[in-house]
Design a protein around this nucleic acid. Structure first.
Length: 260
DNA sequence: CGTATCCTGACC
DNA sequence: GGTCAGGATACG
């Protein structure tokens, strides 16, 4: 489950492989991909040069010489696999990008929920995203103002990409633990002090994750404080970690030291 | 505002 | 063989 640090790592990986290269071929191999990435879109990017790769939240943006942008989102299980176009198509490859140097970048995704689309400029979706969660210039006031408008539990608000783009389930849960805030608290009710503590906590958990390899592994789950630790003792106060469902997603928290 | 939907491997 | 997870979005 790639979160922002993993997407940052993936963006660096693909950047090294594609920048300055020309697209020989873009293919959607899976029916679910073809809904957003038509044969026409694929034909349109053929021959274009990839000028840069940016990331905003968990979106990766491949900017082309034509002004078009290939926008990629890994969702749950997407990842890049880079090899030679002459090699067999990798298992679970959903979209492939072949380059003029013979390299092939495959979007591998067992669950096929990833999305790839070609847009002519980013305006089509960027207004829907808040500032990037890793953007250190976001002020407490900006963050707080976004929360003040939401009458949903703070955990649910953190998952809303219009608040901060790139905060996923794991780090939302971890940040609330670090900030000692009960995930069920209504977002708009947070005091300024708690908003500041939470923003710091989000930055801390993302920075910590970025310092590790940046590649998600199952073993990493064991390093989280509360995520996937239902029933285990809180490392701060030893109370049993609880799991609840909020907006259809698992929330883990310490019922003793995360306060309302 | 909440909920169904996509998709398929993993797990019971 | 049925159920579930889960980010984002569409819908009620």
């Amino acid at each position: 489950m790639p979160e922002l640090p993993e997407v940052e790592y993936a963006a660096r990986q693909v950047r090294a492989a594609v920048v300055g290269r020309t697209v020989r071929n873009l293919k959607a191999l899976h029916a679910s991909q073809r809904r957003r990435l038509s044969a026409r879109d694929c034909a349109r990017v053929r021959g274009a040069t990839i000028e840069s790769v940016d990331r905003h939240g968990k979106h990766q943006l491949l900017r082309l010489s034509t002004g078009d942008v290939v926008v990629v989102h890994f969702r749950m299980t997407g990842d890049w696999l880079i090899d030679a176009a002459s090699a067999p198509v990798p298992k679970f490859a959903r979209v492939t990008l072949e380059l003029d140097d013979g390299a092939r970048v495959s979007l591998v995704d067992p669950r096929a929920l990833s999305t790839v689309q070609v847009i002519s400029g980013e305006k089509a979706f960027l207004p829907r995203l808040g500032p990037d969660a890793a953007d250190a210039t976001v002020s407490v006031d900006t963050f707080g103002a976004a929360l003040a408008r939401r009458r949903v539990p703070i955990k649910v608000a953190l998952l809303d990409q219009r608040v901060l783009a790139g905060v996923g389930n794991i780090y939302a849960v971890e940040a609330l633990w670090v900030a000692k805030i009960d995930p069920r608290v209504v977002a708009s009710s947070l005091t300024h002090a708690r908003q500041a503590r939470l923003l710091d906590a989000i930055r801390a958990v993302l920075a910590k994750a970025s310092r590790s390899s940046g590649q998600y592994r199952d073993a990493d789950v064991g390093r989280f404080e509360v995520y996937d630790r239902e029933g285990e003792p809180c490392s701060r106060c030893s109370a049993g970690i609880r799991r609840i469902t909020q907006a259809g997603r698992s929330t883990y928290y310490c019922p003793r030291c995360q306060r309302r």
